[in-house]
Design a protein around this nucleic acid. Sequence first.
DNA 1: TCGTTATTTCTAGAAGTATCGAAATATGAA
DNA 2: TTCATATTTCGATACTTCTAGAAATAACGA
Lengths: 116, 116
Amino acid sequence: MKHDSPFALEITRAASTFAALGSEQRLHVLRVLVRAGPEGLTIGELGMRSGVTGSTLTHHMKILAAAGLVDQKRQGRKIICVGIDYARIEDIATFLMKECCADSAVPHDKHEASHG
Amino acid sequence: MKHDSPFALEITRAASTFAALGSEQRLHVLRVLVRAGPEGLTIGELGMRSGVTGSTLTHHMKILAAAGLVDQKRQGRKIICVGIDYARIEDIATFLMKECCADSAVPHDKHEASHG
DNA sequence: TCGTTATTTCTAGAAGTATCGAAATATGAA
DNA sequence: TTCATATTTCGATACTTCTAGAAATAACGA
């Protein structure tokens, strides 16, 4: 791949965030978690509510956490899953809009090739 | 998986759209394409500008097209790739915001479980 | 029709992701 | 320390996606 653009890093980050969201199961888990509110849920609760359990849930949560979409903190012997990073969400939406409004929305970056 | 929510279909659609965006290479291709403007680019041109060629590009374009992110139309013996579907982009951003603003933003849907 | 150009389909191996159960780790309580 | 609970890691298998080259298809022009 060619990646000379100043967006290279941002693209890498965006791609892995989209990939994290690109699973129906993870989207479902995320939804359950978000709707549980700021108090969050333990892994066990989250598993029961989403229908995803044990190691599979751990696996998905790790991906969501790496994308900054959820946060996990230990509380005694439980893990509380919370706090979607709203800033990250805005980032994603902004990235999309920026990418998808072509020239007009990206005045700070030159085209990598002319249109002719 | 449990999927009784009225969002089930929307989630399926969102997941595959995110998955389509969840590849650095596809994001790069998309970017090049968007920046080429509404005139679009042929597959060949797109390949040259993005550094992705032949069957690999066809593969990625098929995924992007299925997600409604690009459009392809034949013009003579060339395929012109264009037209990101702006409505789809807004959909995605909206979906994200809706999912990530929990209760307040989703008044038309009940919780699948109580918070207690 | 034949040749040329543009793109896609086919095929296949490599790489990555998902899922599950069992074992391991971490914490708290007795 | 020992037991019970909560979650993660490990290991294996199944499935999907990525990538590329070769062959096939589609369209144009002579």
